[in-house]
Amino acid sequence: MTMNTAGNSGVLPPEYGQLIVEPMTQMSVALQVATVINTKAHDFHFPRVNSDVTAQWTAEGATIASSDVATDSYVVTPKKLASLTTVTNELINDSSPAAQEIVGQSIAREMARKLDAAFFGNLPAPAPAGLGSLTGTLVVDTGGTIANADPFIDGQMEIEASGAALTAWVTSPATARAIAKIKQSADSNVPLVSPDVSAPSGRTLLGIPLYVTAAVPDGTVWGISKADVFVVMRQDVEIATSSGGSTFAADSTDIRGVMRVAPAFPRLDSIVKLYDAA
């Protein structure tokens, strides 16, 4: 994270980065379930293999058949995500870590919320394209209601059949609550979702971490392979402040956070969408 100040050199202590970047990483589900790539380039290119070379059993001395590998490039352009807030100079100059944390947590929370909304949604430009915009991902039709573990087993097997590995489930709070009430069998009181302090999300579903975010629509569950789903960052969070202009008379300071980031989904068969497809 980089910082720039104008008019109040004491606004951001050296520790301020930890008050924003680290909480944002913890708050953003996208940054937890995807692989984060940092780049200085305007565009980031993912080379893709669309069809593998072929191998054949060949007799000794016989000519080995030649084959070509089909490749292309998946290009991602990080987009600008910005936040602006105004706080009193009394709060900014307060030496209490708790006072500084209030501002940092606010910026981190908003950045995380907007990043997740873009990652899991289908927002209009200039937001980057998210999971909700994709066609061609793996799909499991859950019907009207998820009543047992079958859709999750199907989703996991679909991803594994493609050669990927399921590493996270992500759904909405309401859907997570409904899934948590499902029992492992008709004559069991053991829930399908298990608390697990060793899991990053604190809970697992079929042994896979289950994450919850309001950015996912109710009734939808995403299954993701972290090795094949990415968040590309061209610019880490940059914080700038200014106490001039309209904030001068109010004895307050504007704090602006800016980052350039975009999700990337070069392999559609590493993502499964569980929902009512009817």
Rank of each mutant, 00 (worst) to 15 (best):
I239P: 02
V197I: 13
K181M: 15
L205D: 06
T175G: 06
V139N: 12
Q156F: 06
D154I: 08
V139W: 03
K226L: 08
A164W: 09
A161P: 02
I159V: 15
M259A: 11
A174R: 13
D236S: 08
R177P: 00
A176W: 07
R203V: 08
I146V: 15
P173G: 01
P151S: 10
A168K: 02
N189R: 12
D251R: 14
A180Q: 13
L192P: 03
G202N: 06
I182H: 00
L166K: 11
V258Y: 07
T241L: 09
G245P: 08
G219Q: 06
S225A: 15
T213H: 00
R177D: 13
G143F: 01
V237L: 10
V193G: 05
L134D: 10
F230H: 10
E158D: 14
V261P: 02
F152T: 02
A250F: 03
P217M: 09
K226P: 00
R203E: 10
S242G: 14
D196H: 08
A176M: 06
A165G: 07
G144R: 05
F248V: 11
V190P: 05
T167V: 05
D154V: 08
M259G: 06
S188Q: 04
R177N: 14
V140T: 11
I224L: 15
I208Y: 10
T175K: 01
P217R: 05
G219C: 08
I146S: 10
G155S: 12
G155R: 05
G219L: 04
A174F: 05
I239Q: 02
A165W: 00
P191T: 07
L192F: 06
S198R: 15
V140G: 09
A180G: 15
S198K: 14
V212R: 05
Q184K: 15
Y211F: 15
T142A: 15
